[in-house]
Amino acid sequence: MQGKMTGFKCKSCGRVMYPRHERCLGCKGTDFEEVELAKEGILLTYTKLYALPEGIEMPPLVLGIVDFGGVRALGQLTTDDVKVGMKLRPIWGKLRKLGGREIYGFRFEPAEKS
């Protein structure tokens, strides 16, 4: 069980990145600290995938890009009742089974239950 979804903040210029880079995308700095992303993000775009990849059983697989105020993350959505601009929050869970191994990571669920 993982707690918070984190990004990597460049100690030189303050830019927050996700995923991790060895050198900052802004200033090429090499020192980072792990920082928690905002608790909620906004859905920027999404798709409902019917041609499924390995290890996903039920269509559709809903995937989206969530904006946490400048830093963004791509991931699975827990609902197919989706709309661009909706608020989402990260929740730890199983992503898919790959090569016999279960992969875990952050998925996104609606921040306000309807």
Binding site: T45, L49, A51, P53, L61, G64, L95, R96
Partner: peptide
């Protein structure tokens, strides 16, 4: 890891 395919990328664009 999240299950992204190229059609999924194109769909989001």
């Amino acid at each position: 890891a999240h299950g992204v395919t190229l059609p999924a990328m194109a769909a989001m664009l």
